[in-house]
């Protein structure tokens, strides 16, 4: 037998074709695939056996029941998660993703299910305290924002603030604090921010108030939340489920279920169960 180059080429092409079509995406009528990080307590977390659990997992189970679809959850690193959705690797992302104008250019969202703003966490022994703790600032209010930022920047001068990469908090820090000479350090994984806050590499961390609350639950003796809660502007309009652009039908289905859960108090009850407070908006 003579092996020629073209035999090889043909075999290679055939193999490539099998690989490419071997895992056809979401054949009609199959389960919907939702991606999450599994490392963003208490929204989504991973048990040692790989099971995903948390506020969003309970909420999604209820949404699926009401909207009448079957689904599958997969864990995915945040780095590249939106890109994976755009490329059609899964149908939706449920990972406390906030609705922002920039993201709306490339993806669509359901109705939001949390509203809580974003704030800072510091270690108690650092002695850092930001002004305005307990108040909330809407970034659409320029005067109030400028005043609050000036005060915060004065305290954080020469310090390092850590944040999860490509989040609304990272956008906020880039826009408001980086120009004032404060060092911003971005982390590919959310939990690593708290790790470096705890061991003293960071002077402060910024995240959503709910995420910080989950961190403080375990570290109440050593760490504390500080500074005002920021919302609006680059902080977007609350977290929602993300779907591919042009998949409005799926978003509508999810939104309708969220609406009914909000109406009969199920959403608030779930929030109380996981956060201890109601962080969901009145839909």
């Amino acid at each position: 037998m003579n092996i020629t180059r073209s035999t090889f080429l043909r075999a290679g092409l055939a193999a490539a074709a099998t690989l490419a079509t071997g895992a056809p995406l979401l054949a009609q009528g199959k389960k919907l695939v939702f991606a999450t990080e599994g490392a963003f307590p208490p929204f989504n977390m991973t048990k040692p056996d790989g099971t995903l659990y948390g506020f969003e997992m309970d909420m999604l189970a209820e949404i699926a029941k009401r909207a009448g679809f079957e689904y599958e959850l997969i864990a995915q690193a945040w780095d590249g998660m939106i890109q994976g959705l755009i490329d059609g690797k899964y149908d939706a992302v449920i990972d406390s993703v906030t609705i922002t104008a920039k993201r709306l250019e490339v993806v669509d969202f359901s109705l939001p299910y949390t509203t809580g703003g974003s704030t800072f966490a510091v270690m108690k022994e650092s002695g850092i305290a930001l002004p305005g703790t307990g108040t909330s600032i809407n970034l659409d209010d320029a005067a109030a924002t400028d005043a609050a930022i000036a005060q915060i920047a004065a305290v954080l001068e020469g310090k390092t603030v850590g944040v999860h990469v490509s989040t609304i908090q990272a956008d906020f820090l880039d826009k408001y604090l980086a120009p004032r000479g404060i060092t911003i350090r971005t982390y590919p994984n959310g939990p690593d921010v708290y790790q470096d806050l705890s061991n003293g590499r960071l002077d402060a961390a910024m995240a959503s108030a709910t995420n910080i609350a989950a961190f403080l639950e375990k570290n109440a003796e050593t760490a504390t939340a500080t500074g005002p809660a920021f919302s609006g502007g680059v902080m977007g309009k609350g977290a929602a489920i993300v779907v591919q652009k042009g998949k409005g039908e799926l978003a509508d289905k999810l939104s309708a279920a969220l609406q009914s859960m909000s109406d009969d108090g199920t959403l608030a009850a779930l929030s109380n169960q996981w956060f201890g407070i109601n962080v969901t908006p009145k839909l």
Binding site: L13, A16, A23
Partner: peptide, 14 residues
Amino acid sequence: IGTALGFAGPFDIS
């Protein structure tokens, strides 16, 4: 490549 070879999409690789 898949489209060029005449397979119908969508395509995904695991």
